[in-house]
Simulated assay, not measured.
Amino acid sequence: MTVTHSHRPRGNDPQVFGRVAVLMGGSSSEREVSLDSGRNVLDALRARGVDAHPVDGIPALLDALVHGQFDRVFNILHGNKGGGEDGVLQGLLQGFEVPYTGSGVLGSALTMDKIRTKQVWLSAGLPTPRYRRLQAGADLRAAALALGLPVFVKPSSEGSSVGVARVETLDDIDAAIAVARGYGGEMLMEQMVIGDELTVGILGAQALPSIRIVPKGGWYDYNAKYIAEDTQYLCPGLDVAEEIAIGQLAVDAFLAAGCSGWGRVDVMRDRSSGKLLLLEVNTAPGMTSHSLVPKAARQLGISFEDLCWMILEQTL
């Protein structure tokens, strides 16, 4: 994959951005990850001379906007229920006519709901693992038998592998039921794909090189994502022909879900068939030391500071 003009900053004058709020933290289950990401983004923008300031959560941002304190927002809030990925923040900022990074209302709201994202992809002819939609109190045992083991059970509207249970045998069902009860809302039961876990960063409408994730424990859970130091990240993750295919699939999935700006698309490659299957879209990916979009950008020679600048440039 070659570095095009769109993979380079367009300008170098930090004054064009005005006063920038770096929105982080919030009250979702991903608060700590968001604070870590936000501090990194803040440092990167300030290093480039941007007049950037931290803002913790939507209520604090709302107060600042009422008083006209910011010209644009770099959104690095993760998750829903107090996070910045479910469309609520995006609608608020559009109401205030304040530019912001990332997807708009539609893409943000849709992709925070894994089940409805799958429905859109299937309607567009895009591949995704088989699944069942589980209402609160649903019979997980019957659903698992109908779908076929092994499966994952996860909340439809959480990220960062929060609340995910693996069901490889019927003995695992009770643990999955306990997870489901803990979240109470709609759950997704998804057929487990045995194969390679990959992710593709999106910048503008172009794919960054894929990353193949090889966790030591065999599963890319919250610990492997944010804590463990022994997870391997292979970039690019595939050979040239497959790299082109996964990049196109990721862009198609991103656009089909109404997304824009930047983000990340998670994909599985089935080991037996080689088929690529879409898992989900993240519209405000992590920007921590373990995060994947910065790793992919570095493969193209894009520094972390350049990446943050280029994302912010999309608001101009």
Rank of each mutant, 00 (worst) to 15 (best):
residue 1 M to R: 02
residue 3 V to C: 10
residue 4 T to Q: 12
residue 6 S to H: 14
residue 7 H to A: 09
residue 17 F to Y: 07
residue 18 G to F: 09
residue 19 R to P: 03
residue 27 S to R: 11
residue 30 E to V: 07
residue 31 R to W: 02
residue 34 S to H: 01
residue 39 R to C: 11
residue 45 L to A: 10
residue 46 R to Q: 15
residue 46 R to L: 10
residue 48 R to E: 15
residue 48 R to N: 14
residue 53 H to W: 15
residue 53 H to D: 13
residue 53 H to S: 14
residue 58 I to C: 08
residue 65 L to F: 07
residue 68 G to F: 09
residue 69 Q to C: 13
residue 72 R to P: 05
residue 72 R to F: 08
residue 79 G to C: 11
residue 82 G to S: 10
residue 83 G to F: 06
residue 83 G to H: 07
residue 84 G to L: 14
residue 97 E to D: 15
residue 106 L to M: 14
residue 109 A to C: 04
residue 109 A to K: 06
residue 109 A to L: 05
residue 109 A to Y: 04
residue 113 D to F: 08
residue 113 D to A: 12
residue 113 D to M: 06
residue 114 K to M: 05
residue 114 K to E: 05
residue 116 R to C: 04
residue 123 S to E: 12
residue 127 P to Q: 01
residue 133 R to S: 15
residue 135 Q to E: 14
residue 137 G to F: 03
residue 140 L to C: 04
residue 141 R to F: 04
residue 143 A to S: 13
residue 143 A to V: 02
residue 148 G to P: 07
residue 150 P to K: 10
residue 151 V to D: 03
residue 152 F to H: 08
residue 162 V to N: 06
residue 165 A to S: 15
residue 166 R to F: 03
residue 167 V to R: 03
residue 170 L to E: 15
residue 173 I to Y: 01
residue 179 V to H: 00
residue 180 A to C: 12
residue 182 G to F: 03
residue 182 G to C: 07
residue 187 M to P: 01
residue 200 V to F: 12
residue 203 L to N: 11
residue 204 G to A: 14
residue 216 K to I: 04
residue 217 G to A: 14
residue 220 Y to N: 13
residue 221 D to V: 13
residue 222 Y to M: 06
residue 225 K to F: 10
residue 226 Y to E: 03
residue 230 D to L: 04
residue 235 C to P: 08
residue 237 G to R: 01
residue 243 E to A: 00
residue 244 I to G: 12
residue 251 V to L: 12
residue 258 G to S: 09
residue 259 C to P: 02
residue 263 G to W: 03
residue 266 D to Y: 11
residue 268 M to N: 08
residue 269 R to H: 10
residue 270 D to W: 01
residue 271 R to F: 01
residue 275 K to E: 15
residue 275 K to Y: 00
residue 280 E to Y: 12
residue 280 E to D: 12
residue 283 T to V: 15
residue 292 L to C: 05
residue 292 L to P: 01
residue 293 V to F: 05
residue 294 P to K: 03
residue 302 I to L: 08
residue 306 D to F: 00
residue 313 E to K: 02
residue 314 Q to P: 00
